[in-house]
Computed example of a mutant assay.
Amino acid sequence: MLRFPGHGRPHPDDIVIAPLDLPGHVDEALAVQAVAFGLGPDEVAVRRQIVLRHMTFPGARAFGATAKGRLAGFVYGMPNDRTHWWSTVVEPYLRARGNDDWLDDSFVITELHVHPRYQKHGIGRALITTITDGADQPRSILSAIDAESPARHLYRSLGYQDLARQVRFPSADKPYAVMGAPLPLLRR
């Protein structure tokens, strides 16, 4: 369990980090992602199919943070595979920086989202360290919007470094950065 300060926030003992049956809770997870990431209904519908497909990949797993029985945040990921769509998009950017070897023997954080009501209390940190602590790979990779943000600050504090910047995904308006870190992730 995570502990929180008061100030109208959740009670200290209300947050539990545990394995998540993501296919069984996909709509609840995507509702968190929609609020946290600003997604509309059409994009949620597309992402629903992506999440369900990802969870069939070997080694895919998810963790959730629940508060009073409701999902407050989630993370999911899997061992990276160069044939997956994400890898095929980021590979040229990584290769240009001499970092395409990071696509091998890495655990990719596919999504990490915390409902805004529960942000800034260590839930994102707890989720990502919990999922990567169980990885068989020696390192982790992820992509994040290429802007200074609380998410990028969190990733850097865990040991992630930029491997490529200004990465353009076909359906995204903003450029992304690909980041990588050795495992286990840094602790405070």
Rank of each mutant, 00 (worst) to 15 (best):
D104I: 01
H115F: 05
Q166Y: 09
P184Y: 09
L112E: 04
S87A: 15
E91D: 06
A126R: 09
R139P: 02
R95D: 03
I141D: 00
L158D: 07
F74D: 06
P138K: 14
G98E: 02
A96Q: 07
A144W: 07
G180N: 14
P150D: 10
R95F: 01
H54W: 01
A29M: 02
A135T: 06
L39T: 07
S140P: 09
V89I: 15
R53Y: 13
D100K: 00
P23S: 13
P10I: 04
R188P: 15
K174M: 11
H153K: 15
R152P: 05
A67H: 11
T132M: 03
L2T: 02
F57A: 11
P150A: 11
L2G: 08
Q119G: 08
Q119M: 07
W85T: 06
H25M: 02
A29K: 02
P10Y: 04
L183M: 14
F57S: 02
G98S: 05
N99W: 00
R156N: 06
P58R: 05
G77F: 03
L71M: 06
S149V: 04
V44W: 12
M78I: 07
I141V: 13
R152Q: 15
A151C: 11
A45I: 12
K120I: 03
R3P: 09
P116L: 03
P116I: 01
A177L: 12
A164S: 03
P184L: 10
E148R: 11
T129E: 10
G159A: 05
